[in-house]
Design a protein around this nucleic acid. Structure first.
Lengths: 211, 211
DNA sequence: CACTCCAGATTGACTAGTCAGTCAACGCCC
DNA sequence: GGGCGTTGACTGACTAGTCAATCTGGAGTG
């Protein structure tokens, strides 16, 4: 049995982290008090400061824990011997399943970190960039190999792809899209088709003057 | 001469709004004090409350002012008699030019409202949704007419398109992309090409099992 | 033109409340 | 019995919003 969870002893640190996810997700990092987290965890106020230096450190911990898992997943996916489209489908699946599995945690990460340009986003920029680079790597191989257009820089493509997925999650967070298993599954294929295959029909003859 | 600006009289309300944009953009809505806004505007603290009921009302005003301009622009673009791709190019141009023209304002709108699921985002959900619907309308016409794939629902496509653009702005906000005129101009064409034309080469024969 | 008068603009000290973080003490387990 | 885990009352610092006082420009009057 693991060190922390032996006997009936519960890992209070983990309890606090899990409680923080729920509280941050429902009230927002700025609108909740540390006492809310302590109460939710069923733990005394002061104990939070025994395990974490500050309220911010809780959020940082949550982000880093989860983000690293995603970076590792992207790295593993990139190493597979399959077409780029399948890799991107796997990445989309991983992110969407992460949301499906723990919507509160993903909401906190996206809303409070990934998109928080004035607070935690800036702090974790390097980690966020790593994800872009991982996706860009997948695109880059496909470009070199000729299956992806060389006209679109891979970092740019990665940004569009990741942006589309994050917007999807945002739509689920905002309840603009139904949160059902079918919706999640369908979205994986659709987002890949939209970004890789494009919106235009293959037989499209519509002219255009855009660059 | 307009009522407010006749003679040497300055419109203090406007002064406060403009100062708020700068302060919110650089410090973040939550990390700045009302006194910072007043100081930046060169105005007494109390005057802020003469013109606005609360700190939040300043942000709401900024968002609604600017967002309505964008909604009007999308509506106007949709009514043009050009291919869907050109319409989407025009929408992308409008948003990117908005950022180029006033990065602070766009940063505030995106970071503090559009992506703030726990505070202002929820408040302005309907307005935000209106933008999606406007873009979806453009896609829908193209689907009916056959130039866009019918397999991808138009709201879904709109979300991917808008998400890609917002991610681009975020990259500029985070300084992950160079902020130059060439970059802005290039991005307009690239984002449309990525979403409408897709990342894959036309002659792409790479197989795929995703769907 | 000189003067009064007032409504709206402007000021900034102050209040009332909030909340992150501290700390001294307690207790439980090894 | 000692150290780590745990407690929660308390403090110190901060700030959104109030308000009574002051200012200012222009309309009305003789």
């Amino acid at each position: 049995m693991a060190t922390a969870a032996k006997q009936g002893t519960v890992d209070k640190r983990r309890l606090i982290l899990d409680a923080a996810v729920r509280v941050f997700a429902h009230q927002g990092f700025h609108h909740c008090r540390v006492s809310d987290v302590a109460d939710e965890a069923g733990v005394a106020y002061g104990l939070v400061y025994h395990y974490f230096r500050s309220k911010e450190e809780i959020l940082n911990t949550l982000f880093l824990e989860r983000w690293q898992i995603m970076l590792d997943a992207i790295g593993e996916i990139d190493s597979r011997e399959v077409p780029a489209r399948d890799k991107l489908y796997a990445v989309a699946s991983f992110i969407i399943d992460s949301y499906r599995h723990d919507p509160d945690l993903m909401k906190v990460i996206i809303v409070e970190v990934t998109r928080a340009a004035n607070s935690f986003g800036a702090l974790h920029l390097d980690k966020i960039r790593e994800a872009y680079l991982g996706i860009a790597g997948i695109v880059e191989s496909a470009r070199e190999q000729g299956s992806f257009k060389s006209a679109i820089p891979s970092e740019f493509a990665a940004m569009c792809f990741y942006g589309a997925i994050e917007q999807l999650l945002t739509a689920w967070i905002f309840e603009l899209l139904p949160r059902t298993d079918e919706e999640y599954e369908g979205a994986k294929g659709l987002v890949v088709e939209a970004i890789c295959g494009g919106l235009e029909s293959a037989h499209n003859g519509a002219g255009s003057s855009s660059a």
